[in-house]
Design a protein around this nucleic acid. Structure first.
Length: 176
DNA sequence: GAAATTTGACCTCA
DNA sequence: TGAGGTCAAATTTC
């Protein structure tokens, strides 16, 4: 895992800058510190019942990225995780389904990170990614924070979404 | 044949 | 009780 980070940190740094620029342009609620959203923290704090059955416990944060033809040409970026899709759901009020991804090495490397990718209704070129990452000890790992924060969008997850987007756009073009 | 994705069912929570 | 999140069998891809 660590070797992967070293291998990628150069490109990740530029990705981070790009992501921040995109976030500024989008006026997204993205926090520079990559902290979990306050509303979610509040929700988690309220939930002090049966610990074993708790859901939505992991620290999480969202990021938004506009997918452009340029970013497509740049190829895929890896965020340090290998993501595997485990579900997709139609979300009430959302135009596009939400996809659910988890770390491929969940069992072999105790990697319990998950993320959700949701296309924006207003702008289908924007993908909102919500990351839930933590180390097995329950303490956030710095690499996890940075890697998930910096470039979660062109991993296989986003690539898959892009394929979907491309297909949708092709259909739209055909219909027009 | 192994790994990844799809998708319907099931579970949990508000 | 409905919506969101996860599981797991079936299917697809490499």
């Amino acid at each position: 895992m660590e070797h992967r980070w070293n291998w990628e940190q150069g490109s990740l740094a530029s990705e981070l800058i790009q992501g921040l620029e995109s976030a500024k342009q989008l006026k997204s609620p993205l926090s520079i510190s990559g902290s979990p959203r306050s509303e979610d923290l509040g929700k988690d704090n309220r939930d002090t019942r049966d610990v074993s059955k708790k859901r939505k416990m992991l620290p999480r944060w969202t990021d938004q990225v506009r997918i452009t033809s340029e970013s497509l040409l740049e190829g895929t970026h890896d965020d340090g995780y290998s993501w595997r899709k485990y579900g997709q759901k139609d979300i009430l009020g959302a135009k596009y389904p939400r996809s659910y991804y988890r770390c491929t090495y969940r069992h072999t490397q105790d990697c319990w990170a998950t993320k959700q990718v949701q296309r924006s209704d207003e702008d289908p070129t924007i993908f909102e990614s919500e990351n839930h990452s933590f180390s097995p000890s329950g303490v956030l790992d710095n690499n996890n924070i940075l890697s998930s924060f910096s470039s979660p969008f062109m991993s296989p997850a986003a690539t898959s979404e892009l394929n979907y987007l491309s297909a949708s756009q092709s259909q739209t073009n055909t219909l027009e």
